[in-house]
Amino acid sequence: MEFLGYPADQWLPFTFAALMGLSILIYVCLDGFDLGVGVLVPLADEAEQDRMIASIGPFWDANETWLVLAIGLLLVAFPTAHGAILTALYLPVAIMLLGLILRGVAFEFRVKAPYKWKRAWTWAFFAGSLLTSLAQGYMLGLYIMGLISTPLTIGFALLCAVFLTVGYSFIGAAWLIGKAEGDLQSKAVNWCKGGVWGLILGIGAISLASPFVSTRIFDKWFTGPSLIYLAPLPIISGLLIVYIWSALRRLSVNPNKEIWGPFVAAMALFALSFLGMAYSFYPYVVPEQLTIYESASAPEALIIILVGTLFVLPTILAYTALSYYLFRGKATELRYD
């Protein structure tokens, strides 16, 4: 099973690492905005809350499925890494799961339970979104620190928890600029302005911290010609941030133009940061301990999954696109009929 001259135990793990990375990135971008909308809920009044939640109604469930796919790929392609990572992150994973449960069900209960409970379920929706975002940021931070818990690494992980939550809130607000109208839209522009600093600090902190945790990563970035061909990453990121800042200023004046500008730019920013991280950590899946080649499942098992993936993944992307197309435009009240 050679492919482009590479033996199966080389190209299959690499392909699956790429697929898993893609799933994580899509998850972070898609569920990121609906988690962010959840975190922003307390800042709005009840009618606006309904509108905000309606804007993510048809999507949140499919968005979360990317997390299941990402964790599923980790599980099936790199089983030993799956065990090592998840047992190291036992508590934050449990907190994230409780958060996901709370927000997922609150979404339904909010509108179906008696009205007197609606406020309580709105809070559950907020609390669940917040817990999920914080837990994911914490896990990201601890992963960058090599999954080792010392006071220093835990401090960094806590910082990442805050940054990722602000980052999610930012893309949540950017989503609302596109989906909302009137007062809520102006509020969303202001939320974005408030969150952009968190975005910069978060990406900055993670980019600066990784090379200093591991000399291997430091050497990958700062020795030889790599510095030159990696330079576009930080430069484009910087330009994107400048664009976001100026677009937000224009949006406060005219809320009808470039409404998707900040959202798309923020997605690109997330993608670039993710690429940078992937470059830093490759070939390790458990930082500095286990490479994707050491922990991969048997090629026979991987090829079985890959064949299906090649057919199914484009289909999934196509009908996901169909769903976003059908529910395009400004968010309207969610109705079953």
Binding site: P58, A62, F327
Partner: peptide
């Protein structure tokens, strides 16, 4: 995950709303 979860999750949105 690939043949079932995404199918139901995406089309649920269309089915409901």
């Amino acid at each position: 995950i690939m043949t079932a979860f995404f199918l139901e999750a995406v089309f649920l949105g269309i089915m409901l709303f």
